[in-house]
Computed example of a mutant assay.
Amino acid sequence: MEIGLSTFVETTPDVETGEVISHAQRIREVVEEIVLADQVGLDVFGVGEHHREDFAASNPALILSAAAPQTKRIRLTSAVTVLSSADPVRVFQDFSTLDGISNGRAEIMAGRGSFIESFPLFGYELQDYNELFEEKLDLLLKIRESEKVTWKGNHRAAINNLGVYPRPVQDPLPVWIGSGGNSESVVRAGLLGLPLVLAIIGGRPVQFEPLVQLYKKAATHAGHDPAKHTVASHSHGFIAETTELAANKFFPSTQQVMNKLGRERGWGPYDRSSFDAARSFEGALYVGDSNTVAEKIIHLRKNVGITRFMLHVPVGTMPHDDVMKAIELLGTEVAPKVREEVAKWELEREEK
């Protein structure tokens, strides 16, 4: 059972002061967070790609590369790479370079993204949303399969027997499919034999169990061994010494972000009752003390079937010291308990 973190490197106004941290400062803080995550024994750290003012990570591979020489074991991934509006050649080159710097610890999490700013920025039409992703994923997988590539599509210049360099340490370079719960994307990952990441950020996490089964069914149908393909989850959360403290620290910035997105997308207001309902045992927020968060992750493993859990923290702008403390608790208290309990449960299940 792998435990890790993800961040969007957000730079929203401070809830109390209204001050906005600079992109440069937040990027430096995230590098410190990655280094700490490695030191406390976490398995993976993901950085998400965005192209708007309130996010500082337009190039996750570059931020991860800054942390790579300062870390030893932790895997470094995008979360996600917006492949639909990216050039798969450059994506592969960036993460292959990261793989070299980290000596084989890079991963790509490919997705379509939940924001649309990158499409006009890079000259793509939203009407081609689905076709762009399918075509570019096809090219990315061809590049990782072969040093020399011949390929033709509708949205990028053709490639005729050209080499793509550098080549990664890992063969193949891991490529994950990120999904918000769309059955088509889940089936695609299974048919391609690629590991799957589910963004579980609302509702009841146990409701994602049928999607995991659908993924495994598709993988089996395509001749892949589903036991070899990891299913990960990505969920918002925060850890502190007590559950009350964690909730009180995490709510203000979460409310600010959710209400801003709500105004942009037509959602209703996000209040404390919505927040508290989501952090209940069956809810999608992993907020509380170490035992509370660990028990929820164990529950997710047993009832949904995920084998990697990524805690997304912070949501919005939170004090860097608070984020660092949450990372420390996740690595030193939550992860050991989850790994021990899951290992015991799996052994008992095998003996039956």
Score class of each variant (00 low, 15 high):
Met1Tyr: 01
Ile3Cys: 06
Gly4Glu: 08
Gly4Trp: 04
Thr7Ile: 14
Phe8Pro: 02
Phe8Asp: 08
Thr11Arg: 14
Pro13Gln: 13
Asp14Cys: 10
Val15Cys: 04
Thr17Tyr: 12
Glu19Met: 03
Ile21Cys: 04
Ser22Tyr: 03
Ala24Thr: 11
Ile27Trp: 02
Val31Ser: 08
Glu32Gln: 12
Glu32Ser: 11
Glu33Gln: 12
Ile34Thr: 10
Gly41Ala: 02
Phe45Trp: 01
Val47Ala: 08
Gly48Val: 12
Ala56Asp: 05
Ala57Val: 14
Ile63Val: 14
Leu64Glu: 10
Ser65Lys: 04
Ala66Gln: 12
Ala67Arg: 07
Ala68His: 10
Pro69Tyr: 09
Thr71Glu: 10
Arg75Lys: 14
Thr77Trp: 07
Thr81Ala: 12
Thr81Asp: 11
Val82Leu: 14
Ser84Thr: 13
Asp87Lys: 12
Val91Asp: 10
Val91Asn: 06
Val91Pro: 14
Phe92Leu: 03
Phe95Ile: 09
Ile101Arg: 00
Ser102His: 09
Ile108Leu: 04
Ile108Asn: 07
Gly111Pro: 10
Gly111Ala: 08
Gly113Trp: 05
Ser114Asn: 13
Phe115Thr: 13
Glu117Thr: 11
Ser118Leu: 11
Phe119Pro: 06
Phe119Ile: 02
Phe119Trp: 09
Leu121Phe: 01
Glu125Asn: 15
Glu125His: 10
Gln127Arg: 15
Tyr129Cys: 01
Asn130Leu: 09
Glu135His: 11
Glu135Tyr: 14
Leu137Ala: 07
Ser146Met: 05
Lys152Pro: 06
His155Cys: 03
Arg156Asn: 14
Ala157Thr: 11
Ala157Lys: 12
Ala158Lys: 06
Asn160Arg: 09
Asn160Asp: 15
Leu162Ile: 09
Leu162Ala: 15
Gln170Phe: 06
Val175Tyr: 11
Val175Gly: 13
Val175Asp: 11
Gly178Asp: 01
Ser183Lys: 04
Ser185Tyr: 01
Ser185Phe: 01
Val186Met: 03
Arg188Ile: 05
Leu191Lys: 15
Leu191Met: 13
Gly193Phe: 04
Leu198Gly: 03
Ala199Trp: 02
Arg204Met: 12
Val206Ala: 13
Val206Pro: 00
Gln207Met: 13
Pro210Glu: 06
Leu211Lys: 02
Leu211Ser: 07
Val212Arg: 08
Ala219Met: 05
Asp225Ile: 04
His236Pro: 08
Ile239Lys: 00
Glu241Asp: 13
Glu244Asp: 15
Ala246Pro: 13
Ala247Pro: 07
Gln255Leu: 01
Val257Trp: 07
Pro269Lys: 09
Pro269Cys: 11
Tyr270Pro: 11
Tyr270Phe: 15
Arg272Glu: 11
Ser273Thr: 09
Ser274Phe: 11
Ala277Ile: 08
Ala277Val: 09
Arg279Tyr: 07
Glu282Leu: 13
Gly288Arg: 03
Ser290Ala: 14
Ser290Met: 01
Ala294Arg: 04
Lys296Met: 09
Ile298Phe: 02
Ile298Glu: 08
Leu300Phe: 03
Arg308Val: 12
Met318Phe: 06
His320Asn: 08
Asp322Gly: 03
Met324Thr: 03
Lys325Leu: 03
Ile327Arg: 00
Leu330His: 01
Leu330Tyr: 04
Leu330Ile: 05
Gly331Cys: 04
Thr332Val: 10
Thr332Trp: 00
Ala335Trp: 00
Pro336Ser: 00
Pro336Gln: 01
Lys337Tyr: 12
Glu340Thr: 12
Glu340Gln: 15
Val342Phe: 01
Ala343Ile: 00
Glu346Gly: 05
Arg349Leu: 02
Arg349Val: 07
Glu351Gly: 02
